[in-house]
């Protein structure tokens, strides 16, 4: 028995010597990503936002909903880094808690879109022509309705609130993932390794999960990152319209819609939530572009 294990180990060592360490695609991509300056800037911004979201209770200097009517519309100062709003609430504390809302919405919505969209795209690309036609025409239909308008309509039907907003944002992004996954599958479905797996007796589910999916992951990972940017913008817009986060919970979009009437009195109320959205979304966009360059060296410019 011991000798068999040794032989295996020796074979593996030999393979590594000849082919280099395993998973070189991901390792190379990681190296390229680390050298991509905008992507690293994006990652740094997002790390900061994630820390704000995860430890918000510990780092908020004030109660984000605590009002102080003697100290309204304060300018940024040592006590209130970003000033106070029309109820005398600390804007910095509300921005920190808002990060949690934005990331939660992004993660849930994009998970919905990724799971359903990728599954539909795999089925369309790998299945027969009729399956493909039905799925993709349905996606065309969803894509004909502007994403934000469809999300608004779905929230209108399901009822306003942050949970339904997450579902709505996720649903409208399903066609994007379906299209990307399908295109990737069509590119590889007739490759020899798929044929080989089939010849070895693998069923469709096994081929899809073990052979197709790993090979279409990179465009999907890129799209996940870019969709997170869209989801955060969409949540901000929905909350701005009063359909997302409900009072008194702070979200960046709601802070802008509530503060709208006071922007001329106290510009800070309008500046900081907007910058928070801008930088977070930009972080995801930069990271997504970096990932695209890193994972597909052929497309590099």
């Amino acid at each position: 028995m011991a000798s068999a294990a040794n032989t295996e180990k020796a074979q593996k060592a030999l393979a590594e010597e000849q082919l280099g360490p395993a998973n070189t695609l991901w390792r190379d991509a990681g190296k390229r990503l680390l050298r991509h300056r905008p992507a690293m800037f994006g990652a740094a911004v997002l790390t900061l936002v994630a820390v704000m979201a995860l430890f918000s209770d510990a780092i908020t200097p004030y109660d984000p909903n605590g009002m102080d009517f003697s100290d309204r519309f304060a300018n940024p100062s040592a006590e209130h880094w970003m000033g106070t709003d029309d109820f005398g609430r600390d804007i910095f504390s509300r921005i920190i808690v808002g990060a949690r809302v934005s990331l939660q919405v992004g993660i849930v919505a994009v998970s919905v879109a990724t799971l359903f969209g990728t599954a539909l795209g795999l089925a369309a690309g790998y299945g027969n022509r009729i399956t493909d036609e039905i799925i993709m025409r349905a996606m065309d239909v969803l894509y004909a309705i502007p994403a934000l308008l469809l999300a608004i309509a779905i929230v209108a039907a399901l009822g306003k609130g942050i949970g339904n907003a997450m579902i709505a944002i996720g649903l409208v992004y399903i066609p994007i993932f379906a299209r990307i996954a399908r295109a990737a599958v069509l590119g590889i479905r007739n490759e020899e390794f798929i044929l080989a797996a089939r010849a070895l007796g693998a069923g469709n589910a096994r081929i899809l999960a073990l052979h197709v999916l790993p090979n279409v992951l990179s465009p999907i990972i890129v799209e996940i990152t870019l969709s997170l940017a869209f989801a955060i913008l969409a949540e901000a817009a929905l909350s701005f319209f009063g359909l997302g986060t409900q009072p008194p919970d702070p979200s960046w979009g709601r802070m802008l819609s509530e503060g709208r009437d006071f922007f001329r009195q106290s510009g800070w109320m309008g500046v900081f939530p907007g910058l928070a959205i801008l930088f977070t979304v930009m972080g995801f966009n930069f990271l997504g572009d970096g990932l695209r360059d890193a994972l597909d060296p052929k497309l590099r410019r």
């Binding site: 905008p38 940017a229 913008l233 901000a236 817009a237 701005f240 979009g253 802008l256 819609s257 709208r260 922007f263 309008g270 939530p273 907007g274 959205i277 801008l278 930088f279 979304v281 930009m282 966009n285 930069f286």
Partner: peptide
């Protein structure tokens, strides 16, 4: 163009 795709439209309109 990175700023353009990342800025919330309503915020820019208000500004």
């Amino acid at each position: 163009s990175q700023i353009g795709v990342s800025v919330p439209t309503f915020w820019m309109g208000i500004l």
